[in-house]
Amino acid sequence: KAAQALGYYQPQIDSDVKGGKTPRLVLNIDPGEPVHLRNVTVRVEGPAASLKSFRVPKSAALKPGAVLNHGHYEDAKRLIQNQASRYGFFSGYFTRQKLAVDPRAGVADIELVYNSGPRYSLGKVSFEGDTPFDEDLLQRMVPFKAGAPYDSELIAELNQALQSSGYFEGVRVDAAPTAAKDNVIPVDVKLDTRKPRTMGLGLGYSTDVGPRVKANWTRHWVNPQGHSYGWETEVSAPRQNVGLFYDIPL
């Protein structure tokens, strides 16, 4: 089976037992000639076929004349399915998926035809959780408009924007294809607001300034518009620095 997975369907195996105090089994394996690909069809049909970013497997390992490798065949199927999941072709399926091997002739044929079906789109983003922020502030962090074609990267960007805002200690973005209606996927976001204030204190030493103390205090949100302010200071023998800031999200 292991040899067949790499395209060797007619190996010759000879065994011999070597005598002595510790008998040894010696196997001599002649893999023989590998099976080569003859006819290869890998095609995507439907709306995904016109999407330039949808990559169809075109590896040299899947060209006629290449040595058959079952792993490359499975990789091609997996790549198509992963692309379909990323770009929202959740109704797609293989209309043909065949690997036919003729060991005597030493050839194999591959046929992979995928019907993508329609591309799903993203619906309006709704936010849940006890947050003090205006809906307008939250919607400005959404990197897409309602009705945009589905792309899992957009969901990742939304999650990153919320996480990096500094307002939340917990973010969960749900965009489940099973919840779609008329191929539109609702996007539900659950938010846990962080504590409004944090304070930090640090001690250090360096050869140029000697002992030093650092401290900071931040009010992460002041009002529903997401304004924030704070201060930070560093004190050492040669210098004393104090900084203030007030941030307004744009």
Rank of each mutant, 00 (worst) to 15 (best):
S59L: 11
A146T: 07
I155L: 11
A84E: 05
A179K: 12
V40Q: 09
S59T: 15
Q160R: 15
P31H: 12
V213Y: 04
A48T: 08
L158T: 07
N159D: 14
Q163W: 02
L137H: 05
Q225N: 11
F133M: 04
V56S: 10
P118Y: 08
A61W: 02
V209R: 12
Y120C: 03
G46C: 06
V173W: 02
R119L: 03
L68P: 01
D208S: 13
T22C: 03
K18E: 12
L203I: 14
Y150M: 11
N241C: 00
M141L: 14
A100N: 13
H220A: 02
A105W: 02
V184D: 09
P149H: 03
M199K: 10
D192Q: 13
K190C: 00
R194C: 01
T178L: 09
Y205I: 04
V213I: 09
R140F: 00
E169M: 02
L51I: 11
F89D: 11
V142K: 02
G20V: 06
R96M: 00
P23W: 08
G226I: 04
R219E: 15
S116K: 06
Y120A: 06
L6I: 00
H227S: 07
P196I: 04
V107L: 13
N223G: 03
T22L: 14
N159P: 00
N39E: 13
G65Q: 12
L158C: 10
V42H: 03
A84S: 10
F133I: 05
S228I: 01
Q97E: 14
F168K: 06
V40W: 05
N82Q: 13
A5M: 05
S116M: 05
S126Q: 09
N241S: 08
S116W: 02
K1P: 00
P149A: 13
P47H: 08
L191V: 04
R197K: 10
T207L: 07
Y9F: 12
Q139R: 15
A175I: 07
S50V: 11
V56D: 10
A215I: 00
D192S: 11
Y93N: 14
N39D: 14
R43W: 00
G170A: 15
Y167L: 03
V171P: 01
E45I: 09
Q139E: 06
V56G: 08
Y87W: 14
D192G: 04
A48P: 00
V44S: 10
G230S: 02
V187L: 05
G147M: 06
R86F: 01
Y114T: 08
P177D: 12
Y205Q: 08
L201I: 13
S126G: 10
Y246M: 06
S91T: 12
E45M: 08
N115Q: 15
G200Y: 03
S91H: 07
V40E: 10
N223E: 07
G117Y: 01
G147C: 07
K77L: 12
H70I: 03
T193H: 01
S152T: 11
L51H: 09
D14Y: 06
Y167V: 02
A180F: 05
F89G: 05
W217G: 14
V42C: 04
Y9M: 09
A100D: 15
N183R: 10
K98L: 09
D182N: 15
L6E: 13
Y8K: 12
G117A: 06
V67R: 12
N28H: 13
G65R: 11
V17A: 10
G243C: 02
A60V: 12
G106V: 06
I80M: 09
G32L: 05
V44E: 05
W231Q: 10
V42W: 01
V184C: 01
V125C: 06
